[in-house]
Design a protein around this nucleic acid. Structure first.
Length: 573
RNA sequence: GGACCUGUGGUGCAGUUUGGAGUGCACGCCGGCCUGUCAAGCCGGAGGUCGCGGGUUCAAAUCCCGUCAGGUCCGCCA
């Protein structure tokens, strides 16, 4: 039907007869003997020169037959990839007429989000979206190639799975043949891939769709894609090495540059320096410890045991309204308050300007300046509290909001965060697993499982890129005795464990190899490579924040007959 | 479950703070002119339940209450 693609035309094609197909991107009429028509396909635009009137409209699908020639002297368009050539002696055939589109196909206007979703097929015609989806495909392809070099075997795992009352809320699917019973859609292929290790697949991977019925966000959708892998007879370092390699291959496919190295830091270090387990290493503004500077302080705001600060270099001019908003933001993040100190200069000596400054002793003022290294012109933001994670977390969030560039900007700074705690305290201080309960504790911490569970570190690891968690993984428990110790620490009884995970425990009884794995959040990784702040932009047909699809109308009611067949009652009117 | 932002011809915005006739800009659309444009240009035209409902007022796009939709965030996401 066609001899080539619009965006691939070049001076090499001069003199060729071609037939191109695509959409009418734009037409420029200069009277009845000269019309320029830009033909668009996924590769780009080609200018067709037509002598005579044209009965075509924007977004009509047309085939153009003509001859390629170099554009006349002085009319080449350097801003167009095909700007050196044009097609002349054109004959047009309209393959399909188009209504006037409800949104612009060009990138320079950003239509309303609801409109984009409703006409997603038109939104996807835009060059930006074409670029994103095609880059995503290149990343998929690079990941597959790279992981198969490591001997991994692709296996597809079920979408219809059994409910597991753990972790994220699951999407339920009613059973037609077993009224009252439900399948669930998998939050991840976690248990399936561990069973594949017992099955001797040795090394498994999958580009796996995962589903979680939790409120969507910019970096979270109901359904998302993981590049999921699991390997037998591997250590944490083996997994990190393999994942670093395939992610490097993906980065190279997406950006043309292979990352030089992946840094590594412990969870503790990430929390203390950056106030988060997903540090953005592209800028400084690290947290500093003010504990020593305020020992025995009379200031009630700083009497709490945990005291930290960040310094906003050159931030002294931050207006009061902005500071008030920051205080409010800190509160919404769980801080009791936020103290700010403008640093100004008095005869060359730095002085603090703040509602609290007058309540500080001279030693405290000196200690604060020394600890933060703040100089005249800077702004210091400080938080105190009882909960170290919360205090650091609030400052970590403010650090990102005040200092971070867009996620796709600048270098790609990968960092492995390791030595996560095995458990986190819940509201009552009881240990709940920080990951799933099959994560292997650090060998040297095993003896403390029963006595000090909150001090036990796990063989689990996250990969972070520019402040976004790209994925996480762990070495899994493959020994029944260790698994029992972990269940004990969690207060899960033998019966309860059997009820929830019986099939996995059964499987482990028949010879489970030591194994570990990882899952990369593909949507997030591709979004960063595309310079997008929202993973919707790299998903063909995403949902809105309320979980709806304005195009299909999903979710929708089921017909009463369908409900009956599933054994479900129609909702009360 | 909660906080905040947005909603104005087909599209993107301004107008809302301080109430006074649907006022303005750009794109698109329709018609006309135009032989080298490329976001073509020039002239003319059509196109509106100011998201929806209620309230205050002589008078509401504008103020108040509610509601719907979209977005950002908190909770949630082992």
């Amino acid at each position: 039907m066609r001899t080539g693609l619009c965006g691939r035309l070049g001076l090499d094609d001069v003199g060729r007869s071609v037939r191109l197909c695509g959409w009418v991107a734009r037409r420029r009429e200069h009277g009845e003997h000269l019309v320029f028509l830009d033909l668009r396909d996924y590769t780009g635009l080609a200018q067709c020169v037509v002598d005579g009137s044209l009965e075509v409209r924007s977004e009509d699908v047309v085939a153009v037959e003509g001859v390629v020639r170099a554009r006349p002297e002085g009319t080449a368009n350097p801003r167009l990839a095909t700007g050196e050539v044009e097609i002349v002696e054109c004959r047009l055939e309209v393959l399909a007429a188009a209504e006037t589109p409800p949104l612009s196909i060009e990138d320079r206007v950003e239509p309303d989000e609801a409109l984009r979703m409703r006409y997603r097929y038109l939104d996807l015609r835009r060059p930006r979206m074409q670029h994103n989806l095609r880059l995503r495909a290149r990343v998929n392809s690079a990941l597959r190639t790279a992981i198969e070099r490591h001997g991994f075997c692709e296996v597809e795992t079920p979408l219809l799975w059994a409910p597991t009352p753990e972790g994220a809320r699951e999407f339920a699917v009613p059973s037609r043949l077993h009224h009252g019973d439900f399948y669930v859609l998998p939050q991840s292929p976690q248990l399936a891939k561990q069973l594949l290790m017992v099955a001797g697949l040795d090394r498994y991977y999958q580009i796996a769709r995962c589903l979680r019925d939790e409120d969507p966000r910019a970096d979270r959708q109901y359904e998302f894609t993981q590049f999921d892998l699991e390997a037998s007879f591997v250590s944490q370092d083996d997994v990190i090495e393999i994942v670093s390699d395939v992610v490097s291959a993906a980065t190279e496919a997406a950006t043309g540059e292979r990352p030089e190295h992946f840094e590594q830091m412990t969870y503790e270090e990430a929390l203390e320096r950056f106030g988060t387990d997903k540090p953005d290493l592209r800028f400084g503004m690290e947290l500093v410890d003010l504990t020593a500077a305020f020992v025995g302080t009379s200031l009630r705001a700083f009497s709490a045991p945990v005291r930290r600060a960040i310094t906003l270099t050159g931030g002294a001019e931050t207006p009061r309204s902005r500071l008030d908003a920051l205080v409010e933001r800190a509160r919404s993040l769980g801080a009791a308050g936020l103290a700010w100190f403008r640093v100004s200069s008095d005869a060359g000596e730095p002085v603090l300007d703040s509602p609290l400054a007058g309540h500080l002793s001279a030693d405290e003022r000196t200690g604060l300046l020394r600890a933060t290294g703040a100089a005249p012109g800077d702004m210091v933001l400080a938080v105190a509290g009882d909960d170290r994670r919360r205090v650091c977390g609030v400052l970590g969030a403010l650090r990102v909001e005040l200092g971070a560039k867009a996620v796709g900007d600048g270098p790609h700074r990968f960092v492995w965060v390791v030595d996560f705690p095995m458990f986190e305290p819940d509201d009552q201080g009881n240990p709940v697993p920080a990951h799933h309960p099959f994560t292997m504790p650090n060998a040297e911490d095993l003896s403390r499982l029963a006595t000090e569970p909150l001090s036990v570190r796990a063989q689990s690891y996250d990969l972070v890129l520019n402040g976004w968690e790209l994925g996480s993984g762990s070495v899994r428990i493959h020994r029944a005795d260790v698994q029992q110790q972990v269940f004990d620490a969690l207060g899960i009884s033998v019966d309860e464990a059997r009820n929830r995970f019986g099939f996995l425990l059964d499987a482990f009884g028949y010879g489970a190899p030591p194994h570990g794995g990882f899952a990369i959040g593909l949507d997030r990784m591709v979004a960063i490579f595309c310079g997008e702040e929202n993973i919707r932009e790299v998903i063909a047909f995403p949902k809105t924040q309320s979980g709806a699809d304005p195009m299909t109308g999903a979710p929708k009611p089921l017909a009463a007959s369908a409900l009956r067949e599933l054994g479900l009652a129609p909702p009360k009117p």
